[in-house]
Amino acid sequence: MKKTLLVISTAVMVALAAPAFAGAKQDAVMDHYKKLAKGSFSAERGKAFYSAVHTGGKPATPSCTSCHTKSPTGTGQTRANKPIAPMALSKSPDRFGDLKKVEKWFGRNCRSVLGRECTVQEKGDFLAFMYSQ
C-alpha cells in the first residue's frame, strides 16, 4: 500500500515537473530532433534562447520576442499586422505537429533573427521550452 502511494506520488510529481501538452504528433517531431542531437534538450536553455537579443540577423527582428512577444503564451503580430497564435503548446495544442512546417519556420526565422540556420541543439531546446509552456 505504502509502495503504491509512493509510486503514485512520484508519478504525480514527475507529471507536474514536466507538464504534458504534447500529443503524438508533437512527440514525433521532437523524436526527429532527438535522433539528430548529441546530447539532451533543455527547456531552460530554450527559454534563454527565446528571450535573447541576437546579432547577425535583420536589425528589425533581433529576437524571437520581436514578433512573438516576451511570453510564449502571448499573441504575437507579423510585420503586416496579422496576429500570430501563441507558441506555447498549452495555448496552441496543434503547433509543432508537422515537421515540414516546423522546419520551414525555423529556416525563415533563424535566418531573420540570427542570420544563419539554427543548430539541432538550438531547435531542440526551443521546442522543449515551447512544449513545457
Binding site: K58, A60, R79, K100, K104, G107, R108, R111, S112
Partner: peptide, 12 residues
C-alpha cells in the same frame, strides 16, 4: 522569397 519585402518567406 528569401527577401520578401524585407522578410524571409522562403518556401519549398
Amino acid at each position: 522569397l528569401g527577401n520578401h519585402f524585407g522578410e524571409d518567406a522562403s518556401l519549398d
